[in-house]
Design a protein around this nucleic acid. Structure first.
Lengths: 162, 162
DNA sequence: GTTCGTGCAAACCGTTTGCACCGAC
DNA sequence: GTCGGTGCAAACGGTTTGCACGAAC
């Protein structure tokens, strides 16, 4: 985990008179173990490897806290599940491109997109805020071959949904 | 309802050997009564005015069908609820701007946005697909006055959530 | 008459919450 | 010792599903 993130969290807790507990430490560690997006359930599994007594409730409560502290992003990927994005703290303006077929998520930053977003938003009488931008698309491989590894994985994993 | 939509639906049913029932007719009528976004629950209320025996299950099943037929759009507005967009059939490329504070949703179309989206998507090796674009922002009124009518309505409606 | 559709209620699934105990400060 | 945190299990809310009955075709 980056030192800046650690510092932000410490500050957040201190400002509010909250405590750094064993469980929070473990869950936070699990959050920043990788740069991948994850669901609450996935985080639970990871956190329970660090501390088997971690409860679902604490995981959810810690996620709310981290999002509120601004070190963790929420991404709407559809399909009824919330995903969390540990790269948010460092690159709060990145966008997501999502394959509608295989679910692959690509993060990208583009200055043109940002400028345009800013213009549009202001033109419509709004102030740009959380800039969570989401494009659904279809990856080349699925397009050409009708299948890709992620799609295979998805099907094996949860029984050919989508 | 536009004739084109009607036609698409008829075609969809016929191609699959499905039937046009009283309930489907009523629910579809309710869907296109206004141009506003709505939730499944809101649609249920409207549909039940047309036919008090309408069941929740049929509403959900009909929604799935209409989205599949391409005459109805799904919008992720966050907050754990799915919204449906009856304007999707006529303007499949419009985007949504959402006020993070009051929940106001503005639909807009912008050719620059589309071009950029197209470029970005291709550059990343994807083929643009459902183009559901979503920007979270904050409306001027909330910005200046800290409140707007929509925010008041939202608070009255469901008890100051958000 | 066959097959698809419907209504009901129960199941589902991700998430939140009330409560009694626990532990950081 | 105090007060915030935790774990558990139950509640929640939106959505889906199994099943027997009903109705298009």
């Amino acid at each position: 985990m980056k030192a800046a993130v650690q510092k932000t969290i410490d500050r957040y807790l201190e400002d509010r008179g909250l405590r750094m507990t064993r469980q929070r430490r473990d869950i936070i560690e699990a959050v920043f173990l990788s740069e991948e997006h994850f669901t609450a359930e996935e985080l639970m599994v990871r956190a329970q490897k660090l501390n088997p007594r971690t409860s679902r409730a604490t995981v959810y409560r810690t996620l709310v806290m981290l999002v509120d502290a601004g070190v963790l992003g929420e991404v709407e990927l559809g399909k009824g599940q919330r995903f969390f994005d540990p790269n948010f703290g460092e690159r709060p303006n990145h966008s997501h491109l999502i394959c509608v077929d295989c679910g692959t998520v690509i993060e990208f930053e583009d200055s043109h997109m940002e400028v345009l977003e800013d213009c549009l938003t202001r033109r419509l009488g709004f102030r740009p805020s959380r800039k969570s931008l989401r494009i659904e698309a279809c990856c080349e491989q699925v397009r050409k071959e009708g299948i890709c590894e992620n799609l295979i994985k998805a099907r094996v994993g949860k029984g050919a949904q989508r």
